[in-house]
Design a binder for these strands. Structure first.
Lengths: 198, 198
DNA sequence: CCCACATGAGACATTGATGTCTCACGCGGA
DNA sequence: TCCGCGTGAGACATCAATGTCTCATGTGGG
């Protein structure tokens, strides 16, 4: 059945195109469709065959990104175990999709009046719930609101993602840098010696 | 002397226009010049009289933002006193210009091959030096690179700026939320009770 | 070998943003 | 009151991006 092969091929290309587009559009939101196509290694014609237009492309980007991120959230099992560990799992799971997340987080407000994708709200709630759990747990301090911690997590994820793509950070450091900063902060612990990980 | 009054008026309007433009363009980089003008409360004609075109506007935005941020850095006196306090001063000083910073930080890579403004590099170095100082000081932990801490600071500044403009965070919380998270992290200190500030 | 089909390259027409005008209005000072 | 001047509104011309074609090519399967 050639149809199956056809669909598989499309899906693979689609992923690649979307990720390339996200990487480019995050930094240059005014990029031409020619540029987007070239960045993905395809022609504008093919790009246009997969996505009706710029708007459709951005929509697909949004949907795809949310889908991937929600899958990552699910895989991280945020409700299980210590909140700190859950946070670590979360960052690790999201890492492969950080580029998508960066695009969505910065250009999200592109559609003004429209309802911002409910999947986004779901993600916010999941993250907020994690931080709240950690606070009620006693693991996390309570003087930082879950909403801010959620927002801050996005910010750090995005910053780290850019730092990696720009070569200012080693890809291996991604998860550690984010989680260590987020969990422990930059201040050196006075009384807990040898905290620095291997 | 009408000329003086003229210049002053222009300068004031210019500030306002630039800040409005930054606030809009950060979230919707594809916004029309009509939209930019409307957001600033002026007509497209007047906008065009002040800035030759979109490109000129973005350039001016860049220059203005860097200028303001560097002034903030200077005012924060990063070399004086404990690095933690310097960091607090820095965030407090930058707060009024967080919108500008958000724009610059997200759309900076707009000019590809071109030399990204050297003022930007200067800011990076200043911030990096602060973190390095804190590390050599013993105040800060050494397992997070100054480059990452710099990038992370930008990310938190931007996230907080957006959270405030979107109404998800009280403006008063801006400095405290950022500095507390950056310095202390989200994890609750085990052995230092009563750390929560008033 | 032949065919189906996705792709790349390109030629248009169209749309929308932009750059450049002109002109009338309102406000301030002389 | 009259004038200078900045402004807003709008009318274009221009140009770049986009949407829509066609056609040649290459490849993979039958």
């Amino acid at each position: 059945m050639s149809h199956v092969g056809y669909c598989r091929l499309m899906a693979v290309d689609r992923d690649h195109v979307l990720r390339s587009a996200a990487a480019l559009l995050t930094r240059k939101a005014t990029a031409t469709l020619d540029e987007v196509a070239k960045a993905a290694g395809i022609s504008r014609a093919t790009l246009h065959r997969q996505f009706a237009g710029r708007d459709a492309l951005v929509r697909a980007l949004e949907e795809y990104g949310i889908q991937e991120c929600e899958a990552a959230l699910r895989a991280a099992r945020l409700e299980e175990g210590p909140a700190s560990d859950a946070l670590r799992r979360l960052v690790a799971e999201i890492e492969p999709h950080a580029g998508l997340l960066a695009f969505l987080h910065t250009e999200n407000q592109l559609f003004e009046g429209e309802d911002l994708n409910e999947g986004w709200t779901r993600m916010d709630e999941r993250l907020g719930a994690l931080f709240r759990r950690g606070q009620e747990n006693g693991e996390f301090r309570i003087d930082l609101t879950p909403a801010w911690l959620t927002e801050a997590s996005y910010g750090l994820l995005v910053s780290a993602s850019w730092a990696v793509t720009d070569g200012r950070m080693a890809p291996n450091d991604f998860t550690r840098m984010i989680t260590e900063l987020l969990l422990g902060g930059v201040r050196r612990p006075h009384d807990a010696p040898g905290r620095t990980p291997a």
